[in-house]
Design a protein around this nucleic acid. Sequence first.
DNA 1: TGAATATATGAGCATTCATTCATATATGAA
DNA 2: TTCATATATGAATGAATGCTCATATATTCA
Lengths: 119, 119
Amino acid sequence: MSEQNFEMEHQQALHNLKQGLPDDTDLEAMVNIFKAFGDMTRVKIILALSETPLSVGEIADTLDMSQSSISHQLSILKQLNLVSNARRGRNIHYRLSDQHIITIFNQTKEHIIEDDNDF
Amino acid sequence: MSEQNFEMEHQQALHNLKQGLPDDTDLEAMVNIFKAFGDMTRVKIILALSETPLSVGEIADTLDMSQSSISHQLSILKQLNLVSNARRGRNIHYRLSDQHIITIFNQTKEHIIEDDNDF
DNA sequence: TGAATATATGAGCATTCATTCATATATGAA
DNA sequence: TTCATATATGAATGAATGCTCATATATTCA
């Protein structure tokens, strides 16, 4: 294919882009989830919960962080439907609401591994 | 399996967790990538670049944002190896460095779609 | 009921971060 | 070389965010 054809396709694509991009309200849900994943504490909580359901106190112990801090972060994860909870006696047990999440983590790790090959 | 066995497995899992969680330096790379995805502007840039390589100016036009703002965000994406660039005449063309990224976006969208079914 | 334990929540604070503005750098054209 | 265009960059600013501290709520146990 000729240089001109590439250029035409590019112009075409460029023109379509402005309309074609999903609008803010559609993207917001995705961005919010990535925001949630963009914090070390929340990532560790998620990784811990991927092994077994845990109470708030157990998570705080595991991560060596305050109960309050963990509770705040859990409420963010819950609002995004990333975790769900259920009271069991005095404790409240949290669990991952969707194993999908771990797939996303793994996919991202793979991206990083590929990077390491460029040098 | 009995209630006690569940409890024992839980204790076992809990005990393993504190050692088992990846340490901060390992997680940081992943967290940084999610941080990058956790911003509307950067997500839009990535989506645009997934259609076709674009110059800085073209991106700024497409997203209706200042050249400076786009340039700042591109430098963040570049540092994370999410995009690469090449000068072409007066312009600098950016492209996605890895199509993996779009897979991650799609996977995340699927998570959201599943959520919508709970009501 | 009262004490102890587990969790949630709101305010305050320090930090991070996205954008803007001004300006520097690099390229192509005249 | 000089001008115009494209991009990068640093400082400043306002908004968002994560943690702490104090306190409220809920549950169990004696």
